[in-house]
């Protein structure tokens, strides 16, 4: 009973300490666990595989640095895949911070790993625009009315990648990375459905359950959280062994996340043992 009393009045700083250790410790072990792509993640991979080289892919980055650990790895994996397939990628953002996330991805992944790809011809950063779903509706009908320049102020008419692009229907695929609203739901409702454009979502684990109703008829696939990103990295590595030396951040982070989950589960079990022991003692 003394042990029970100890756990019942357990200082929450002990819990914090355990969670902290559970996250830090796996980094020291450098474990690499196998991941297998699930149907929803494989569907995104297959969609990218099915696009003709030269096809335009729109990638709205609708997230901010707080969710970057989950969404940056999946964005990097999909961008690697698209550029390897010689697809042309247009980045944009409905979140103000999204433009910064795109810039970091371009300087951290695209430029070092794809030096042969040319800005303005193979990829472009159209930057942030306000308006949320209103903006999606506007660019579905007329892209040029909202995007006259790219993020650096260069007129889009001077960029080869934008030649022939009049509205969203010129894109063969929309791969949205989303941490909330406006995000994947808005892209499905205001672009994918009315424009009949395939939309897929890479979203935070918290948001992923909200998007399940849209799969598979309105959304071609879904990557949920770090696990979704790790699964995409696994699919990419299986299809493109040249990326075996590229850093697979999501796969690396899955171990600390799994350990944190494990600690949380232990505390839930412990909490319930205390609850039932108390209830039993009360009945006596």
């Amino acid at each position: 009973m003394r042990l029970l009393a100890f756990f019942k009045t357990l200082d929450r700083r002990f819990i914090f300490l355990f969670v902290g250790l559970a996250v830090i410790f796996p980094f020291l072990l450098d474990l690499d666990l196998p991941e297998y792509p699930t149907v929803m993640v494989k569907a995104i991979y297959n969609t990218v595989e099915g696009l003709q080289p030269g096809s335009l892919v729109l990638m709205p980055f609708d997230y901010d640095p707080s969710t970057a650990p989950e969404l940056d790895p999946m964005a990097a994996a999909v961008v690697r895949h698209c550029l390897s397939r010689d697809l042309r990628v247009c980045f944009m953002a409905l979140w103000p911070e999204g433009q910064g996330m795109v810039s970091n991805l371009i300087s951290g992944t695209v430029q070092p790993e794809f030096p042969d790809k040319v800005y303005g011809r193979d990829y472009v950063n159209l930057g942030y625009k306000a308006g949320g779903q209103g903006l999606i509706n506007a660019v579905l009908l007329n892209m040029r009315s909202m995007f006259t320049t790219d993020a650096a102020g260069v007129p889009v008419d001077s960029l080869p990648i934008m030649i022939g692009v009049t509205n969203l229907k010129d894109f063969k695929f929309i791969m949205n990375f989303s941490a909330g609203r406006p995000g994947s739901k808005e892209w499905i409702q205001f672009a994918g459905d009315p424009g009949r454009i395939p939309v897929a979502s890479g979203s935070t684990a918290v948001q992923a359950p909200l998007l399940y109703p849209y799969y598979p008829s309105q959304m071609v696939g879904l990557m949920g959280g770090l696990k979704g990103a790790a699964e995409y990295e696994a699919a990419l590595l299986a299809g493109y062994p040249r990326f075996k030396d590229s850093r697979r951040v999501a796969t690396e982070l899955m171990v600390p996340q799994a350990m944190a989950h494990f600690v949380i589960m232990l505390f839930i079990v412990l909490g319930n043992i205390i609850y039932f022991a108390e209830r039993r003692a009360g009945k006596r």
């Binding site: 819990i15 944190a260 949380i264 412990l270 909490g271 319930n272």
Partner: peptide, 16 residues
């Protein structure tokens, strides 16, 4: 959030 989720789960996630 991870720390607070762990603490809250311990105290509130009960099979009542």
């Amino acid at each position: 959030l991870a720390f607070y989720v762990a603490s809250a789960s311990f105290r509130a996630f009960r099979a009542k």
